[in-house]
Amino acid sequence: MAGPTSRSGDSDTLCSTSTEMTLLPPPTYSSSDPTSNDFRTLTVSNAGIGNLILSPPSSSSTLFYVKNSQWPGNPSVTLSLGAKGGHILGVLKLGVFSENTVGLGNPNRDNIDYESLRRVSNWTHGTYEFEFGRMGDRRRFTWQRTRQPLFADQPDMELRENAESGADGQVLAVYKGCQGLWSTKRGTFYVRRGLDRQAGVEKKLEDWSNWELMVLLTGCGIIEGSRRRARARRSGGGGG
C-alpha cells in the first residue's frame, strides 16, 4: 500500500514513508508496557466541537489534527499533519448500512486503496479487525475493547496482531480514554514503533510510518463511532 509521502520544502517530514513496510517490531521486542521506549505516546485533546488534536506529552504543539464529520459525503475521520487544514494523511468512513473503510492519503488528489475496518460481532462494538500490507505480506490486526464505563462515550482498547499469522500476542498499541466530563484531555495513544524496510535492511523510523498512521486512523475511527452512539443514547436514539 502506497501511503503519504513527504513534500520537498514542506514541514511534512513526520510522515516520510517508504513503499515497502514491515508491520511489526523485531521479535526481540518483548515489552508490552506502553510506557516503555518501544512505544510513542500521544495525548488526545478536544479541539472545538467534536474534533481532536494529538500532541506529544507535555507539549502544546499539535502533531496531528483529527477532524470528525457527520456531514453526508465527507469522511467521518480525517487525519492531518499539524493544525486544521494541514496536509491530509488519511481518512476513515464510518458506514451506517455498509462497512467502515480506511485509507492512507489525500482523497482529493491521491488514488487511495481502502481497507475494511470490520466489526467482528453483530452483537457488540468491542472488537474490530483490519488488514494492512502489500500482497504477500498482508496481516490482520484486532482492536479489542478492554474497558468502557457505563456512562462513558469512549473505550479503552488494545491492538494486537491476529494469531493466525504467527503473532506472539504482544500489544502493538493502547488507547486509554479520559472519562472526565469537563476534561479537555480525551485520552492517550501508545503506539509501538513501526519499521521501514529499504533494500532488505530493516531500521527503526525516526518519523511516523504508514503502519503507525493506520493505527491512529483506525483507533480514532473506533473512538468516533463510540462517541456517536453515546450521543444517540443521550438523545434517546438508542445506538447500543
Rank of each mutant, 00 (worst) to 15 (best):
Gly95Val: 09
Gly236Glu: 02
Arg229Leu: 08
Asn37Ala: 12
Arg160Asp: 02
Leu213His: 05
Trp143Gln: 06
Ile53Thr: 15
Gly133Asn: 06
Glu224Asn: 07
Ile88Thr: 15
Gly136His: 05
Met157Glu: 07
Leu216His: 11
Cys15Ser: 11
Glu212Cys: 01
Asp33Cys: 05
Gly95Asn: 10
Gly239Thr: 07
Thr5Glu: 14
Arg234Ile: 12
Pro26Glu: 12
Gly225Ala: 13
Asp12Glu: 08
Leu195Arg: 14
Arg192Glu: 12
Asn106His: 11
Arg193Lys: 15
Pro27Thr: 09
Gly221Thr: 04
Leu104Glu: 04
Arg140Ile: 07
Ile222Gly: 01
Asn162Lys: 10
Thr43Arg: 09
Gly136Tyr: 06
Leu216Val: 13
Tyr128Gln: 02
Ala230Leu: 02
Pro155Phe: 06
Val77Lys: 01
Ala230Tyr: 13
Asn108Phe: 05
Ala173Trp: 01
Asp113Ser: 10
Val191Cys: 00
Leu150Thr: 07
Ser55Ala: 14
Asp168His: 11
Asn210Gly: 13
Arg139Tyr: 01
Arg139Leu: 10
Val44Ala: 05
Thr41Asn: 02
Phe141Gln: 02
Arg7Tyr: 02
Arg145Leu: 13
Gly133Leu: 12
Tyr190Met: 00
Gly238Lys: 04
Thr124Gln: 03
Gly136Asp: 05
Leu195Trp: 01
Ser121Lys: 06
Glu224Phe: 15
Thr19Asp: 10
Ala2Ser: 12
Gly166Cys: 04
Phe39Glu: 01
Gly103Arg: 05
Lys204His: 05
Ala47Lys: 10
Leu205Asn: 12
Thr43Val: 15
Arg109Met: 10
Trp123Leu: 11
His87Ala: 13
Ser32Val: 07
Leu52Asp: 01
Pro34Leu: 11
Lys67Ile: 03
Gly169Thr: 09
Asp12Met: 01
Gly136Ile: 04
Gly50Ser: 01
Gly85His: 10
Thr184Ala: 13
Ser235Lys: 12
Arg193Cys: 10
